[in-house]
C-alpha cells in the first residue's frame, strides 16, 4: 500500500525571542492510501495548524512533509499552487464557495484551472454530482442553497480533480445534525468505494466516529491514537468520547 502523507518531527513555533509559543512539537504522521483519518483535540491544541501545514498553506519551523512522494517544503509559491491544484482537495468549515459562480461552475473550477478539455470536464462533473445528490442544484448560486448543500458542493469540488488527498477542516462545523450525517455518510462511501484518502480535522466525536483511525493531539503533541478495526461506529464514538474526557476537551461540543 502506498504512503500518501508522511510528516516527520514537525515543529511550529510562533513569536520571537522572549515570547515564544510552541504550537506543534515532535509530530510524526503517516497516512496510507485509502485511509480515512481523523485528527481530534481541544481548541488550541494545534490541530488546525497541523492541517494548514499539510495543506501547504503554512510552513513548519522545522521537520519535513512528504505528500505523494514529493517534499512540499522545497517548492516555491507557483509550484505549490500547481501542487495544491492537482494533488489536494479541500473542504472547509465555512464552505469557501465563490458566490459569483453557480454550483456547477464552483465544482468544475479546479478542472478549468488545470486547463481540461470541455467534454472531459463536463463528464467528470456529471459523474460526481450524483454521488452527493446535487444534480438539481447545478445552476443555482450558493446563496440560494442550504448549508448542507453548500458543503456537498464543496466536497464535490474537492474530489473532482481526483486528488491524492482530501483535507477536511471541521466540515460539519456549520451544519445541522441531519446535514452533517449526510455529508459524513457520503465521505465514508467515497472512502470505501473509491479508496479516496481523507484527512479530517474535527472536535466532534460523532464526526470522528466515521473515520477508520483517529489521532488525538494535546498542547501541540501527539497524545494517543484510536483504531476502529471491527468495532461498531457507536462503540468507536464512545471510545473517542472517553479519550476526549481524559484530554480535557469540552464534552459540551458533542452533539
Amino acid at each position: 500500500m502506498r504512503t500518501v502523507v508522511e510528516a516527520k518531527q514537525l515543529r511550529k513555533i510562533y513569536g520571537s525571542k522572549g515570547n515564544v509559543f510552541t504550537a506543534l512539537d515532535e509530530i510524526d504522521l503517516t497516512v496510507q492510501e485509502g485511509e480515512f483519518v481523523g485528527i481530534m483535540g481541544p481548541s488550541g491544541s494545534g490541530k488546525s495548524t497541523l492541517l494548514n501545514m499539510l495543506a501547504t498553506i503554512d510552513q513548519p519551523t522545522s521537520g519535513d512533509i512528504v505528500i505523494d512522494g514529493t517534499s512540499v517544503l522545497k517548492m516555491n509559491e507557483e509550484q505549490l499552487s500547481v501542487f495544491r491544484r492537482s494533488k489536494l482537495g479541500f473542504i472547509f468549515q465555512d464552505f469557501n464557495l465563490l458566490d459569483t459562480l453557480t454550483v456547477k461552475e464552483n465544482i468544475l473550477l479546479p478542472l478549468a484551472l488545470a486547463g481540461m478539455k470541455v467534454s472531459e470536464l463536463e463528464r467528470r462533473v456529471d459523474e460526481i454530482v450524483d454521488k452527493f445528490g446535487i444534480r438539481p442544484l447545478l445552476n443555482k448560486y450558493p446563496y440560494h442553497i442550504s448549508g448542507g448543500q453548500k458543503q456537498r458542493t464543496a466536497a464535490s469540488r474537492a474530489i473532482v480533480s481526483r486528488p491524492s488527498l482530501i483535507l477536511a477542516d471541521e466540515p460539519t462545523g456549520s451544519l445541522d445534525s441531519k446535514s452533517a450525517t449526510d455529508l459524513l455518510e457520503s465521505l465514508k462511501d467515497l472512502n470505501e468505494q473509491d479508496q479516496t484518502t481523507i484527512l479530517m480535522v474535527t472536535h466532534d466525536a460523532f464526526a470522528a466516529s466515521y473515520c477508520k483511525r483517529v489521532l488525538f493531539i494535546k498542547d501541540g503533541r501527539m497524545f494517543t491514537e484510536l483504531v476502529k478495526g471491527n468495532t461498531s461506529r457507536k462503540d468507536f464514538f464512545n471510545k473517542a468520547l472517553d479519550v476526549l474526557s481524559v484530554l480535557g476537551g469540552s464534552v459540551s461540543d458533542v452533539i
Binding site: E77, L80, V82, P110
Partner: peptide, 11 residues
C-alpha cells in the same frame, strides 16, 4: 479561497 484551492499569485 482561490489561492487555497491552488491558483497562483501570478494568475
Amino acid at each position: 479561497i482561490l489561492r487555497k484551492i491552488g491558483v497562483s499569485r501570478k494568475e
